[in-house]
């Protein structure tokens, strides 16, 4: 285990963290503002990847493909909001879980029906699939670097939006005290649509960016949405800042665990036992981390609702 390998894995962790952040940001805002549990948020991630891949292939241009893909994902997100989620926001959390679970089943099978059950091919544009030299001897994939930069860019943009604009102020107020927003005469339904579609767009963007790195398949959103929920609970529900730092934490711990847990275990419990237990432990790490953090801070690292 040398230091440049650790550095590379740290960067990979950061890159995973950025993807998680893009998905979790919308989730935490929707939950914070509307108290709406959307299990189907991962669907937007899947849609983003599929639609971008398809339109990139159609237009033979990634730039156009990305724009068309994201736009159509956002439109579909808006339609879902209009047809299903709008009704669910006034229901109990249980019914929200049920309804959005139904949406997952529908969209997953629809993707399977349209694009087939096997992963479809989706690669980064030629010009962006090279390596960047971080140091004279250390190369890192340009695409992953772009994801990191995009994540940081979106985080800054969100910070500006939330901290500096009227809508951002309403979102912040809405996540701590719904009544205040109502009192100000704001149409909270319209605010929700805006927040929802924006969150859907971010998740679709995450899917489009992560697509070339992973396999684009109908169930790709399932695991990412669970991780995104881990992120928002650890970060503190409703807190974008919390989601950002929790996403990095979860991403880095997960990647480092998978890269090094088995090796480290070998020195403790022997090679054969470590080969069996290592991958399991690596997969468990983020959940162990989550339990420990919530034991210490049940409301998450950056609770939006303050001390009490």
């Amino acid at each position: 285990m040398n230091s440049s390998l650790v550095l590379l894995q740290l960067l990979n962790g950061l890159q995973l963290g950025m993807v998680l952040f893009l998905v979790a940001a919308g989730l935490t805002l929707v939950f914070g503002v509307m108290d709406f549990i959307n299990l189907a948020h991962g669907v937007q991630y899947t849609l983003g990847a599929y639609l971008t891949a398809a339109s990139t292939a159609y237009f033979a241009n990634f730039g156009i493909g990305l724009i068309v893909g994201l736009a159509s994902a956002a439109v579909l997100g808006y339609l879902l909001e209009l047809l299903v989620f709008r009704v669910l926001t006034s229901r109990s959390h249980l019914e929200q879980v049920l309804g959005t679970f139904g949406v997952i089943l529908i969209v997953t099978d629809a993707m399977k029906l349209i694009f087939g059950p096997a992963p479809i091919s989706f690669s980064a544009p030629e010009a962006l699939s090279g390596m960047v030299m971080l140091t004279p001897t250390l190369a890192y994939p340009l695409w992953r670097m772009l994801i990191i930069l995009a994540g940081v860019g979106v985080a800054l943009l969100l910070w500006l939006l939330v901290a500096r604009t009227r809508i951002g102020m309403l979102v912040r107020a809405g996540s701590t005290d719904r009544e205040i927003v109502d009192l100000m005469g704001v149409n909270i339904d319209r605010l929700f649509v805006l927040v929802f579609v924006f969150g859907a767009l971010l998740a679709a963007f995450a899917g489009a960016m992560a697509g070339p790195l992973i396999s684009v398949e109908p169930t790709m959103g399932d695991n990412i949405v669970i991780l995104a929920f881990v992120v928002i609970v650890v970060g503190g529900i409703g807190s974008v800042r919390g989601a950002f730092f929790a996403a990095i934490l979860i991403g880095v711990v997960d990647v480092l665990g998978r890269a090094f847990a088995t090796t480290l275990l070998k020195s403790v419990i022997g090679a054969s036992a470590a080969t069996a237990a290592g991958p399991a432990l690596a997969s468990m790490l983020i959940y162990i981390l989550m339990v420990l953090i919530l034991m210490a801070r049940p409301a998450g690292l950056f609770s939006a609702s303050g001390a009490t």
């Binding site: 669910l88 019914e95 309804g99 139904g102 089943l105 529908i106 099978d109």
Partner: peptide, 10 residues
């Protein structure tokens, strides 16, 4: 199944 579930909930 998904369509049925969503219909029932709605």
């Amino acid at each position: 199944l998904g369509l049925t579930i969503v219909a029932i909930v709605l």
